[in-house]
């Protein structure tokens, strides 16, 4: 079956700076299960892009394989998308980003896609600080192949099938921190107020931005014995603080009492406000972030919010010193040295 979103929209929908309504950032109608956390994340992506006034066609959305990786069809219908192969989206984004540094790269993956088959590529994209937003729709199971435990399922957690998972979980934010990731956040699909500003901040970050979003699978992993169910997450989430994101062109209107708030200017000029920060976490200090994650984990809580950010991050293009002009715009005159040079090379080979 194929679906297209009906084009009729209410004329009064709010428009952003580019004159786009939120509908301009939507995609086809979702074919995921009703209530799937992934759909809420898609909604947050739509909202973030609309509010940031991004040009939809300047975004490229790429994914691996899984229910989560299908979701890019359901947002940003005016953007090019790429449903690649299982676990290998990071490499496809790497190539795409090398070809054109001027697009915004949004990678969408699942916990199976990232923490098992795609673990190698995930870690190396982090290590290279590829300039992209990497969203893991993390449901602790393989939704599309019908609910097997994934590598992010907590030890002892049980899916609908009922067997408790005997293995420890891979904590993606913890791993990313250890690998030197320059932007690490965690959120919950059910908490749009937290997730939308995090997505916006991630999109303004230069370098690799991970958002691990706990996203319950209502069909296979939303039962009482699961630690990735709506109920469990609502009860056990603890936020690092609140994040407000002010795009570059907007005036800063909110103000926070001094001492409780921090302001960060992103490299594109936008401003990130962090307030009501937990005293135990300095989000600009990697070791503080690692310790906070571990502390919450051992007390059975899920730490959400912005966990770490490196304000001076250098992305892969800067490291490779590639031209400012996107490589895919270069033509013969930039690329082909011509026959005269070749004849000199011939001469050196005689």
């Amino acid at each position: 079956m194929s679906y297209q979103v009906p084009k009729f929209r209410h004329p009064e929908l709010p428009r952003n700076e580019l004159g786009y309504t939120r509908a301009d950032y939507e995609g086809s109608i979702s074919t995921l299960c009703a209530g799937c956390g992934h759909d809420s994340i898609s909604g947050s992506i739509v909202r973030a892009c609309h509010e940031l006034s991004l040009e939809p066609h300047k975004i490229a959305k790429l994914s691996g394989i899984g229910c989560s990786s299908k979701s890019p069809t359901y947002f940003l219908g005016k953007s090019h998308g790429f449903n690649s192969v299982h676990g290998r989206m990071p490499s496809v984004v790497t190539g795409a980003a090398m070809a054109n540094r001027d697009l915004l790269y949004l990678g969408v993956s699942g916990d199976g896609d990232t923490a098992s088959i795609g673990m190698g590529q995930f870690t190396h994209a982090i290590r290279r600080n590829l300039n992209m937003v990497y969203i893991v729709m993390n449901n602790g199971c393989y939704g599309l192949t019908k609910g097997q435990d994934s590598a992010t399922a907590d030890e002892g957690s049980a899916s609908k099938k009922g067997d408790p998972n005997p293995f420890g979980a891979i904590d993606l934010p913890g791993l990313a921190l250890q690998l030197g990731a320059t932007f690490v956040a965690r959120s919950f699909s059910g908490d749009k107020e937290q997730l939308v500003p995090l997505i916006k901040a991630a999109m303004s970050h230069r370098g690799f931005a991970l958002i691990d979003v706990v996203s319950p699978c209502v069909t296979f992993n939303n039962n009482t014995a699961s630690t990735k169910s709506y109920e469990f997450v609502r009860e056990h989430a603890a936020a690092t603080g609140t994040v407000d994101f002010v795009p570059m062109r907007e005036e800063i209107t909110t103000s926070y009492p001094p001492g409780q708030s921090q302001e960060v200017t992103m490299h594109d000029g936008s401003v990130l406000h962090l307030h009501k920060l937990s005293e135990e976490l300095d989000p600009f200090c990697r070791s503080s972030a690692m310790m906070a994650l571990e502390r919450y984990r051992s007390s059975g809580q899920i730490l959400t919010g912005l966990i770490y950010m490196d304000k001076d991050s250098r992305d892969l293009h800067e490291v490779l010193e590639t031209s400012r002009r996107p490589l895919n715009t270069l033509a013969e005159e930039d690329l082909c040295p011509g026959d005269k040079v070749l004849q000199n090379i011939n001469a050196s080979l005689r």
């Binding site: 490229a60 790429l62 790429f82 690649s84 192969v85 290998r88 990071p90 490499s91 496809v92 984004v93 790497t94 190539g95 795409a96 980003a97 090398m98 070809a99 054109n100 697009l103 190698g120 590529q121 870690t123 190396h124 290279r128 892969l316 293009h317 490779l320 010193e321 590639t322 031209s323 400012r324 490589l327 895919n328 270069l330 930039d334 690329l335």
Partner: peptide, 29 residues
């Protein structure tokens, strides 16, 4: 600046993925 980018990948799967991503995006890779 360099009018080229060379990435030593983590394995051949990734190398091929990068080529496909770059070509999809209009570069010769």
């Amino acid at each position: 600046a360099r009018n080229y980018a060379i990435v030593q990948a983590e394995d051949e799967l990734a190398a091929m993925g990068m080529v496909i991503g770059a070509s999809w995006n209009g570069a010769r890779a």
